[in-house]
């Protein structure tokens, strides 16, 4: 099985990982490699600023298309990331897992608690 190193800053051509639209470009590259059953190492190196929206668009949304098992078995993160960016990615991944495992609570629970006037 081949291994692909995906450098986020190279894909988007910037050290600023802000825009969710740029995140989609990263998503497409990772998704293609996942479909090809490749091992993938994601590099967060050289990032200056990063938002949760970018990471959600690039990586969080993978959980809507691939199983948690496949993602866990195929993806790793290179050790060039700083801890702050890793912490943000972990939050985004946790959120995505929660959501795609069971989207209902996100969409229904608060209607029940707060009541819907309509």
């Amino acid at each position: 099985m081949s291994t692909e190193l995906i450098k986020i800053t190279e894909i988007i051509g910037s050290y600023n990982c802000i825009n969710p639209e740029d995140g989609k470009k990263v998503f497409q590259v990772i998704a293609k490699a996942l479909h090809a059953k490749q091992q993938i190492i994601i590099s967060l190196g050289n990032i200056e600023d990063v938002t949760s929206r970018f990471l959600n668009s690039a990586i969080g949304q993978l959980y809507g298309e691939f199983s948690e098992e496949q993602i866990k078995a195929s993806l790793t993160v290179a050790d060039d990331a700083n801890q702050d960016d890793l912490a943000l990615l972990k939050r985004v991944v946790e959120r995505a897992k929660e959501y795609f495992n069971d989207p209902e609570p996100f969409e229904k629970a608060d209607k029940e608690i707060l009541g819907d006037d309509e």
Partner: peptide, 30 residues
């Protein structure tokens, strides 16, 4: 999401951890 709240409660809702108006995608962490 067709949830009717008064204005200040709507802001409060948006600031709670589990709440998001997105459908079919995760997020709402910002």
């Amino acid at each position: 999401i067709n949830l009717v709240l008064n204005p200040e409660e709507a802001i409060n809702w948006a600031m709670q951890k589990a709440n998001t108006t997105r459908k079919n995608e995760s997020g709402g962490l910002g």
